[in-house]
Amino acid sequence: MIIRPGIIRPEIQERYGHGRSERTIENWTKHPDWPAPVGRRGRWHEYPLEAVEAWIAKHAPTEESTPAGKPTDLLTVQEIAAHSGRGESTIRGYISRGRWPAADKEENGVKLWFRSTVDRALAGLRPYRPREGRSSE
């Protein structure tokens, strides 16, 4: 067995993607705080696994890393994004297209949703999966 010193972008997508697009993962690697590459594997930069895990925990937490909280907790769009593992722009898109429930409350112009409302809305969404065999023609 070959022990690899790091992780490449397709492996990051597989391990941490959680419904996120390949473009999102690519954008992560362009973030100023993203770990520096430790080498290459084929055409991909290879990044230190521990540093990637630390970056993701800080900048892109998944549902598994977000505390469950109480059903009556009020969440902002940013908190919904962190809770769901989706991007803020994705959540805002759901709202603008009518694919998200109305806010449960509004305080000082900030829309808020109960965690229970968010969980019900997320359960009704299908996960993002790129289509197989799509060509760019």
Rank of each mutant, 00 (worst) to 15 (best):
A121I: 02
P71Y: 01
Y128L: 14
R99T: 03
G6E: 08
P127G: 08
T29R: 06
G133I: 05
R20Y: 04
G133L: 12
P32D: 00
A54V: 09
Q13V: 10
L112G: 04
Q78F: 03
I25Q: 12
Y16P: 02
I56S: 04
I12F: 01
G93W: 03
R40E: 11
N27G: 12
I3S: 13
Y94E: 07
E106Y: 02
V118M: 07
H18V: 11
E26V: 02
R9Y: 01
I12R: 09
W28D: 11
H45E: 13
T76Q: 05
A36V: 12
E46L: 11
N27A: 15
S65V: 10
T76G: 01
W34G: 05
G124R: 14
Y128F: 15
G93P: 03
R4E: 15
S89N: 02
E26A: 11
E64Q: 08
A123Q: 15
V77M: 06
A36Y: 13
H59V: 00
T72S: 15
T66C: 14
L112K: 04
G98R: 07
P71Q: 02
W55A: 08
P10I: 00
S135R: 15
I91C: 07
G98V: 12
T62M: 04
R86W: 08
P37M: 10
E63A: 13
K30Y: 14
I56K: 10
G39Q: 08
I95S: 05
I3T: 12
E46R: 07
P5E: 07
T90P: 00
